[in-house]
């Protein structure tokens, strides 16, 4: 008993305790898929950050950098994500904000995903063509992201 307490203390002091315990009951395949898709979202956000910074004129417009970011987003939007979204990886899993409604409305999710591919293609054509063209395309791109977040992502602080 005392030894267990010591082990737990060491675990919690090293920060291992909470992580190990929280993940112990999650299927590693599901935990991995959640990490993969959240990393995918992070890559979108990073590249949109470049375009958005220029659109808001917080960083100077640079056609080459804008084109690179837009091409990244277009490429990301067309990746096959089928293994990122296993059934059961919804909000019932700690750290997931994916609503179960996703798996109940797969046709709608796919159609919104196709809208994102189109909006990303519009941005890819526009981003290198000047600040005005970039500014004109960013609303559609944000709207395509938001369309899915509206119905399928849990509200959170």
């Amino acid at each position: 008993m005392k030894r267990l307490a010591t082990v737990l203390t060491v675990f919690s002091l090293t920060g291992l305790g909470s992580t190990a315990l929280a993940e112990s009951h999650v299927d590693p395949a599901i935990a991995g898929a959640i990490k993969a898709r959240q990393a995918h979202m992070q890559l979108y956000a990073h590249n949109i950050g470049v375009l958005g910074g220029m659109a808001r004129e917080r960083i100077p417009y640079d056609a080459e950098a804008a084109q690179a970011a837009a091409s990244n987003i277009a490429a990301l939007s067309t990746l096959n994500q089928s293994t990122y979204w296993p059934e059961g990886s919804d909000t019932s899993v700690e750290g997931s904000r994916a609503l179960a409604a996703i798996w109940e409305n797969l046709d709608d999710v796919m159609s919104k995903s196709e809208d994102l591919v189109m909006a990303a293609a519009v941005m890819e054509d526009a981003a290198g063509q000047g600040l005005g063209a970039l500014q004109g395309a960013i609303g559609g791109l944000g709207g395509a992201c938001g369309a899915c977040h509206e119905d399928y992502r849990q509200s959170d602080d």
Binding site: A45, H46, I48, G49, G52, G142, C145, G146, H149, E150, R153, Q154, S155
Partner: peptide, 8 residues
């Protein structure tokens, strides 16, 4: 952070 609005 260039996340987008979600939900309502």
């Amino acid at each position: 952070e260039f996340d987008t609005a979600g939900g309502s």
